[in-house]
């Protein structure tokens, strides 16, 4: 899979680690990556932010882009958000559209029928 974002595949789910790359326009590659995972048959994408210090406005813009791009193709959930990032996602309204889990394991275990926002 192209792109520099770390990821882990497990069953029909995949965890993608946003790290700090999300804060640069190069982070847009994550959008293509998520799209490609869904095209390969993955049902759920967990974007994990445990390695992300602070999501900036570019990162928010890229995440909105991802949500818009895979609308109707699969589910996206977030995990591992530091408090400051949760606050930012809350401010910009992302938490109203995406389910947020404490960690990636919880996000993967999340009920298949109710695994975050089915976009």
């Amino acid at each position: 899979m192209a792109g520099r974002h770390r990821h882990r595949e497990t069953g029909t789910s995949v965890v993608v680690y946003a790290d700090n790359y999300i804060n640069d326009i190069e982070g847009e590659k994550l959008e293509e990556m998520c799209d490609a995972f869904l095209a390969k048959g993955f049902k759920k994408i967990v974007i994990d932010f445990s390695g992300t210090d602070l999501v900036n406005s570019i990162g928010v813009s890229i995440l909105i882009g991802i949500i818009e791009k895979i609308k109707g193709k699969g589910a996206v959930v977030f995990s591992g958000l530091k408090d400051v990032n949760f606050q930012i996602f809350h401010i910009v309204g992302l938490t109203r559209h995406i389910r947020v889990f404490n960690n990636e394991e919880d996000a993967l275990k999340g009920s298949a029928s109710c695994d975050g926002a089915s976009l």
Binding site: D24, N56, S57, I58, S61, I62, I64, V92, G93
Partner: peptide, 29 residues
């Protein structure tokens, strides 16, 4: 960050693109 971006020696197209993303991210557009 916007101030830093517009004064950076980066390629103009990239600066404009980053600036647009910042605006969009700020207003969640």
């Amino acid at each position: 960050e916007l101030g830093e971006e517009i004064t950076s020696p980066k390629d103009f197209t990239r600066v404009v693109k980053s600036s647009l993303y910042m605006v969009m991210g700020t207003f969640s557009a």
